[in-house]
Write a protein that binds this DNA or RNA. Sequence first.
DNA 1: GACAACATGTAAGGCGTTACATGATTCG
DNA 2: CGAATCATGTAACGCCTTACATGTTGTC
Lengths: 188, 188
Amino acid sequence: MLGMALEYAILVSLLEKPGSGYELARRFDRSIGYFWTATHQQIYRVLKRMEGDGWIEVREVAQEGRPDKKVHSVTPQGRRALEDWLREPVEPASLRHGLAVKIRGAAFSDPADLIGEVERHRAAHSARLEEYLTGEARDFPDPVSLDDGAALVHVVLRGGIEYERMTLAWLDEVLAVLHRIRAGHAES
Amino acid sequence: MLGMALEYAILVSLLEKPGSGYELARRFDRSIGYFWTATHQQIYRVLKRMEGDGWIEVREVAQEGRPDKKVHSVTPQGRRALEDWLREPVEPASLRHGLAVKIRGAAFSDPADLIGEVERHRAAHSARLEEYLTGEARDFPDPVSLDDGAALVHVVLRGGIEYERMTLAWLDEVLAVLHRIRAGHAES
DNA sequence: GACAACATGTAAGGCGTTACATGATTCG
DNA sequence: CGAATCATGTAACGCCTTACATGTTGTC
């Protein structure tokens, strides 16, 4: 029962602004998705359950020039569920890093084969860092004077930025080790 | 088919040293578990499948003063499966941080309620950093002259260390924001 | 006699991914 | 006419966690 942060991530997003399943899916590709990902299939499934539990209400909205949509909003019950969860402890997340498994596995094959893969990861993390920094410059031009809500959003984004910076530095270390190993093999 | 790093983490661990399901579970609480976690239930289930696929062999070993155990070791086929996987790309992992969901959610309740929770996380990450640093001092007293295999193990550990340092610094930022918000409420 | 460590599993239920499926509207 | 975007779902399958279940041996 401790891993189900998806419900609560959806509650937070719908409290910030009610929306359709489709809109939620797009938010999980951007802002919220920076620290909790979800696909539209997951979202539709969980929305249905949350509606059954009385946490959210659905209102059908006809649109011009677009298909109708179901706009979801949080009920007082849903809000209470979020507040209860905020008071419960969550487990500190452990790392789940497939690349680290590969690096350890490289000892049993040719480590140089991994260089391309690590460079690919480096490029992906570099792109994500750029995205975060662009978002920070756009949404928080003056980070010293933020209201409470904005300060909380900003500090989460700051975590993403520092995570990507740290990861880039680590991948550079990994690449240095792999290049050193390759050079050593060439000598002998 | 891209998320199944558990099989390969087990192959790596069994290549380093054959062992029982129970022993593997303990390794996943320590060294390998620093970057890929698994419970004994998962491990027994996957071991059975891997045995069916011919990736590992099982040998029953009677012990003195302890229950018998099944020692698993990697077959040539299993080793080939690992080598094939090392050549396939894996997706860069996205963050899955429940605490970040809570921080965003704190805007809709009393942010000061979160201070205790964040401090608990800070203590857990601080303890893990100490553990990593102790392991580094013990296993890598002279990190400049390592053979290839040890260099790869060390650089993965270095990643864990930097991740924990980064996380501690971020949690201090989060605490600063939460304290500032609480002080602001006290004034008004 | 109780407890910890060693050792191996099953079952239930929710999470997550991939593939499949449908249909409207807008823009080029 | 085709592609992209908006919009909502179902189905299948495997992953992961939690709880349950059993039994041995050694130590206090």
